[in-house]
Design a protein around this nucleic acid. Structure first.
Lengths: 140, 140
DNA sequence: TATTGTTATACTCTATAACTATA
DNA sequence: TATAGTTATAGAGTATAACAATA
């Protein structure tokens, strides 16, 4: 029973797998995908609401609630911006850093497991393809 | 400013792109991603709630509401199963077939556009990789 | 008893519109 | 006036638990 699929369908299927892995890992930590994604995004550095909303493709008002819920869990904090009293930056707490890193590592680990045995050349190819597609998608 | 990304990160990024394209196309038709996904899934044939819930990784109770909303929009109908009076199959209406096909085609078209210029060999490679990863993810 | 699907309930996610405070 | 962020509101998505009807 070997069903052949097309290229586009492969992309969609891959997206489902990634989404599900991310969802599973998040869920195991008592987080939603969105909450976990927020934590992962903040690992690098604190980010303000307006920029976060662009990065996550969310309206600012939607973000307010998401941040509220993660803040209530003690994983992030609103830190005031000294240069602009209207603004704040969302920063991970110590526990948030832990959860964010663990989530990221676990997702990475599981995806690596699924891709086990894939040659370095093939990986590089996929990275190249994705980088190109991603750039095209953001360009317009 | 050329930032190099890892293989796993590429997978995650690709998933985001696909999700977003799917979301954009759905939205343009006044549908949510989940509703559009349901329509696309039903293009092949009508499916019962239990099987749908496995295919979409959703609890049956969550599915009831989703089907309700899509049915309210006149895109699907609950058809009774003659061999089992407990069961029903969710079938696309004529309008549902149209929307499902158009959504599928538009998503395909936009993803193809993003992957324009990619060689046949590279496409085949990606299909192979995804098929393998997808199979591993479902296996356990 | 097991299975199919629904209902009740409680959160979460999301957008739109209107708002406050600061720039 | 424009920008940063919040509030109010409404609808959609989701899970858990309890349920009805049928197998």
């Amino acid at each position: 029973m070997t069903t052949t699929i097309g290229f586009t369908e492969a992309l969609v299927r891959l997206a489902h797998v990634v989404d599900q892995v991310f969802g599973e890992v998040s869920r195991e930590r008592g987080l939603t995908s969105q909450q976990a994604q927020l934590l992962c995004l903040l690992i690098e550095e604190p980010v303000g609401m307006t920029r976060l909303s662009r990065l996550l493709h969310l309206e600012k008002s939607s973000l307010t609630g998401l941040v509220d819920r993660v803040e209530r869990r003690g994983l992030v904090a609103r830190v005031r911006d000294d240069t602009d009293r209207r603004a704040c930056r969302i920063a991970l707490t110590d526990e948030g850093v832990r959860q964010g890193n663990e989530t990221h590592n676990e997702v990475t680990s599981r995806l690596e497991q699924l891709a086990e045995g894939l040659s370095t050349a093939d990986r590089k190819l996929m990275i190249g393809v994705v980088t190109e597609m991603s750039a095209r998608h953001q360009a317009p």
